[in-house]
Computed example of a mutant assay.
Amino acid sequence: MTPSEVLDLARAHGVMIATAESCTGGLIIGRLTDVPGSSRAVDRGYITYSNAAKTEMLGVLPETLEAHGAVSEAVAAEMAQGALARSQAGIAVAVTGIAGPGGSDHKPEGRVCFAIADAWGIRTETVDFGALGRDNVRAATVEHALELLAAALRD
């Protein structure tokens, strides 16, 4: 799914998009805003790399971070919910993961948690892209986030 196609879907549904990004550091919003005319469908992007930023900017609860860790569907859900609540958007996508290098047995390199928040609720999923290298994990995360946005906008 191209960014232009995602923006067309958002415009067709009359909604603006917000992003809440950790491991991608703004790459999703960057891809969307590379498209001329994107301001008609993009509201804002939050880059919340640190836990403090997730809490301060998006309202992620410290208890959620403590219980599940930053790379979790629970945190992704709160990030997406916070981005939706703190914006003029009708749909928000959130990503948090381990782009690498590094990781652990419990949370390996290449694991990314995604969330979509919109008027119908919050949906989450985890994808293990594998140890593809930092750039490739981040690129795969952006592409998957665009696919999730498109799927949600098609429903």
Rank of each mutant, 00 (worst) to 15 (best):
T2A: 12
V6K: 12
V6Q: 11
L7W: 10
D8M: 14
L9H: 14
L9C: 12
A10L: 05
A10D: 10
R11T: 06
H13L: 14
H13C: 15
H13V: 11
H13P: 00
G14F: 07
G14L: 03
M16W: 11
I17R: 12
T19M: 05
E21P: 07
S22E: 02
S22H: 05
S22K: 08
T24R: 02
G25D: 07
I28E: 12
G30L: 04
R31N: 10
T33W: 09
T33K: 11
T33F: 08
T33N: 12
V35Y: 02
G37P: 08
G37C: 09
S38M: 03
S39Y: 03
R40T: 14
A41D: 05
A41N: 12
V42D: 09
D43W: 08
R44W: 11
Y46T: 01
Y46G: 00
Y46N: 01
Y46P: 02
Y46I: 04
T48P: 00
Y49R: 00
Y49E: 01
S50I: 04
N51R: 04
A52S: 14
A53C: 10
A53P: 01
A53H: 01
K54Q: 06
T55H: 07
E56I: 03
E56D: 13
L58V: 01
L58Q: 07
L61E: 14
L61D: 14
T64W: 04
T64Y: 03
L65W: 02
L65H: 03
H68I: 02
H68Q: 11
H68S: 14
H68W: 05
G69A: 12
G69P: 04
G69T: 00
S72G: 00
S72K: 04
S72Y: 03
A74R: 13
A76Q: 06
A76K: 07
A77W: 04
M79V: 00
M79Y: 02
M79F: 01
G82M: 04
G82P: 00
A83H: 06
A83F: 10
A83V: 06
A83G: 13
A83M: 05
L84E: 08
I91E: 05
I91C: 09
A92Y: 09
A92E: 00
A92F: 09
A92N: 09
T96M: 12
G97R: 05
I98N: 05
I98A: 03
G100N: 08
G100F: 03
P101Y: 09
G102V: 03
G102E: 00
S104H: 01
S104C: 05
D105T: 12
K107H: 02
K107Q: 14
P108F: 12
G110A: 12
V112Q: 06
C113W: 06
F114H: 07
F114W: 06
A115N: 11
I116T: 11
I116L: 10
I116P: 01
A117H: 03
A117R: 04
D118G: 10
D118S: 13
D118K: 11
D118F: 02
A119I: 07
W120S: 15
W120K: 15
G121I: 00
G121S: 13
I122R: 09
R123I: 09
V127F: 07
V127A: 13
D128V: 13
F129Q: 11
A131I: 00
A131W: 10
R134P: 00
R134D: 05
N136H: 15
N136E: 15
V137Q: 08
V137E: 10
R138V: 02
A140S: 14
E143V: 07
E143Q: 15
H144P: 07
E147N: 13
L148T: 02
A151Q: 15
R154H: 14
D155C: 11
